[in-house]
């Protein structure tokens, strides 16, 4: 964050007015172990540092250490839930949140963490993830079925058009749920979710993708056969990297590839056991468990056209 940014100045003022010296020091030690403001400012231990100078130094130090956003998130949590059992009224917190928005960060109401405003910037790590650090992430993997056959039997132009449409569709569906498309190769890709309700977002995105792809195949697919995908959603911890090869080597990606390749049929979405408990009932109702057919506990979703004969309801209608 820019030192002269209004939000930095607001945070300094808020610490001075609302937290005071003791709490500001506790705050600094939450992020930097053993933080000593006298040492940082060259004051002997016996000489008290003026509060205003101390909070100024604390904020600048945390900013320098790349922890400014974490500091603001701490203030938001303290304002809402207190700190170590005690309630604090953090003055000017709304102004600080607005200031963060101005700087390009939105507050995720669910996790109470800031992430980059997608209208201003869309980076792979939401402007927050740090390379090498491990984060809980939910992944959605998508793979085009019979890619080689499609490429062999269709003109280059039609293939490019269909695959571009698929990529645009995935990007739109994923990004509207605060996800990011991490990898995209010729025949599929990997999307990641970290904010909001990442597990639900991955599942809903996978479902919407299958639904929209069915409509695309019914209406404007230029290929000689339906464009089919297999999709899988899985969650776990992943050390963040911007190198695709490093992401692909992680355990969670290997697991999702296995779920997608071994246990997922064409035109279906598989949801792993790590996600299934977090899926709300109204959505889970349209999944079936693969049960004994599969060594992993996987839920599966597919959508198909109601045949005219099913109109009065043999199959589970999409709305039931």
């Amino acid at each position: 964050m820019r030192i002269k940014s209004p939000v930095v100045l607001n945070v300094i003022r808020t610490l001075y007015l609302s937290l005071g010296m003791d709490l500001s020091l506790k705050l600094a030690r939450e992020f930097i172990e053993g933080y000593n403001v006298n040492e940082r400012m060259g004051f002997p231990p016996s000489v008290p540092v003026p509060v205003q100078d101390a909070v100024n130094r604390i904020v600048l130090d945390l900013n320098e250490a790349g922890l400014f956003i974490e500091l603001v998130e701490w203030l938001v949590r303290t304002d809402r839930y207190g700190f170590r059992g005690k309630q604090y009224n953090v003055a000017g917190i709304d102004e600080i949140i607005k200031g963060m928005e101005f700087e390009g960060y939105l507050l995720d109401p669910e996790s109470e963490l800031f992430y980059e405003d997608p209208r201003k910037q869309r980076s792979q790590g939401w402007g927050r993830l740090k390379i090498g650090q491990e984060y809980p992430i939910t992944l959605l993997r998508v793979d085009i079925v019979s890619n080689s056959r499609l490429v062999r039997n269709n003109s280059e132009e039609n293939i490019a058009s269909a695959y571009d449409s698929l990529r645009e569709l995935i990007t739109r569906i994923v990004e509207k749920r605060r996800g990011r498309l991490w990898l995209w190769e010729g025949d599929g890709g990997l999307a990641a979710f970290s904010y909001g309700h990442p597990n639900m977002s991955a599942v809903l995105s996978g479902m919407e993708l299958l639904n929209e792809l069915l409509v695309y195949n019914l209406s404007s697919n230029p290929l000689d056969r339906p464009l089919q995908i297999r999709a899988a959603a899985h969650a776990g911890f992943i050390p963040y990297s911007e190198e695709p090869s490093e992401i692909q080597r992680t355990e969670i990606v290997k697991e999702i590839v296995e779920i997608e390749e071994r246990y997922t049929k064409a035109d279906t979405l598989s949801v792993s056991a790590s996600i299934a408990p977090h899926v709300d009932g109204i959505i889970k109702d349209c999944f079936v468990s693969l049960g004994n057919d599969c060594p992993r506990e996987i839920l599966s979703y597919a959508i198909q056209l109601c045949a005219p004969s099913q109109r009065n309801g043999k199959a589970r209608a999409a709305w039931k």
């Binding site: 997922t264 349209c286 599966s300 597919a302 589970r316």
Partner: peptide
Amino acid sequence: RRFAGFSTTGSAPH
């Protein structure tokens, strides 16, 4: 004439 909509089901693995 009616477009009869969609139905959803899971599916078994191959």
